[in-house]
C-alpha cells in the first residue's frame, strides 16, 4: 500500500515553480527528499499537507486525496519542521495538554514512554530544549496520536553529529514493524546514505529521480580523467569540473561506456546533488 502518492503537482510562483512533481512512498519505508536550498522541498511538503494549493495535481495519503479528506488524514500524519518553532515560551506540558485534545487516538501511556525514552522533561519550556530535543518532542507528539506517516522538513539540520545519528537510529526503529512511514527532506545527504530506503531528488522544482537508494546511486557514475578524455564524454556529462589534473564529472550510468579507460566510481548523494546544481549554473 502507498503511504504517500504525489501525482503531477504543478505550482507556479513568479520566480519559481513546481513542475510535474510525482513520486510514491510505500508504507513502512523511509524516503529521503533531497535538493539544494530553494529547490522546492518545502513547497512540495506544504502541498502535501494542503497548506498551499497546487495549480494542478493530487496528493493521496493512504489512498485518500488530502484535498478531500484533510481532517481525517491529519489524524494520521505527524510532522516536524526543523526550523519553525511554536509557542516556545510555554512548557511542554502545557503545549501537550492543548495538542492532545485535537487527536482522537491520543494515548497518554505512549506519550510518557517516549518522553522517558527521549529523556524529555515535560516541565521544561520549548525554548530551553536543544534543536534535537525539539525534533524528538515533535516525534513523541506524533507517535502518541498514532501517526502512521511522519512528514519531516529538515529535521536533522542544525543537529550535532551525535544527535543526528541518534535521531536516524530512531527513524529506522520506527519503520521496523512496517506500520510507520517516514518522508523527510534534508540537504544533509549523509543522513540518507545511512537510513533512507528511497531517495527522491528535486532540483529547481522538478523531480530528477525517485528511486530505491542503491539503484539511485548506481544510476550515476562519477568520472575522473584527463582533459583529452573529457572531449570523449563531454556531450554526455551532466556537469563537470576541470582542474589541473584533468576533470571530474557526473554522467548517467546508461550513457557511460564501461569499456572506456576513464576511471569511474559510484558517486555519493552529495556529489550527485552538487553536479546537478552545477548543471543548472552552466545553462543559466
Amino acid at each position: 500500500m502507498l503511504a504517500l502518492d504525489v501525482r503531477h503537482l504543478n505550482k507556479s510562483y513568479q520566480n519559481f515553480g513546481l513542475e510535474n512533481v510525482s513520486f510514491q512512498l510505500e508504507k513502512g519505508y523511509i524516503m529521503g527528499f533531497i535538493g539544494a536550498n530553494g529547490a522546492g522541498k518545502t513547497t512540495t511538503i506544504k502541498s502535501i499537507l494542503n497548506m498551499i494549493r497546487p495549480d494542478s495535481g493530487e496528493v493521496h495519503i493512504f489512498g485518500k486525496n488530502i484535498a478531500e479528506h484533510e481532517i481525517e488524514l491529519k489524524q494520521d500524519i505527524g510532522y516536524a519542521f526543523g526550523d519553525i518553532d511554536f509557542y516556545t515560551r510555554s512548557k511542554m506540558k502545557t503545549l501537550t495538554d492543548v495538542i492532545k485534545k485535537f487527536y482522537t487516538h491520543w494515548d497518554d501511556e505512549t506519550y510518557y514512554n517516549y518522553l522517558r525514552r527521549f529523556k524529555l522533561d515535560e516541565n521544561k519550556k520549548i525554548i530551553d530544549l536543544s534543536t534535537g530535543m525539539r525534533v524528538k518532542y515533535n516525534l513523541a507528539l506524533a507517535l502518541s496520536h498514532g501517526a502512521k506517516l511522519l512528514i519531516l522538513d529538515e529535521p536533522t539540520s542544525g543537529l550535532d553529529p551525535v544527535a543526528r545519528d541518534d535521531l536516524l537510529d530512531i527513524f529506522q526503529e520506527l519503520v521496523m514493524d512496517g506500520e510507520i512511514s517516514i518522508f523527510f527532506s534534508t540537504h544533509i545527504t549523509s543522513d540518507l546514505e545511512k537510513c533512507a530506503d528511497f531517495i527522491t531528488f528535486i532540483e529547481n522544482g522538478k523531480i530528477i529521480q525517485s528511486a530505491e537508494k542503491e539503484e539511485f546511486m548506481e544510476s550515476y557514475r562519477l568520472l575522473n580523467g584527463s582533459e583529452t578524455q573529457l572531449s570523449q564524454v563531454r556531450e554526455k556529462l551532466i556537469a563537470y569540473k576541470v582542474n589541473s589534473f584533468g576533470f571530474t564529472g557526473l554522467i548517467h550510468a546508461r550513457d557511460f561506456d564501461s569499456s572506456s579507460d576513464i576511471k569511474a566510481t559510484t558517486p555519493s548523494l552529495e556529489e550527485i546533488m552538487i553536479y546537478f546544481a552545477k548543471r543548472e549554473d552552466m545553462y543559466v
Binding site: 484533510e70 481525517e72 491529519k74 516556545t88 485535537f102
Partner: peptide, 14 residues
C-alpha cells in the same frame, strides 16, 4: 511570533 498559523494548520482542524 509564535507561528500560531502554521501550528494550527498542521492539526486536524478546518
Amino acid at each position: 511570533t509564535q507561528n500560531d498559523l502554521i501550528f494550527t494548520t498542521m492539526m486536524p482542524v478546518t
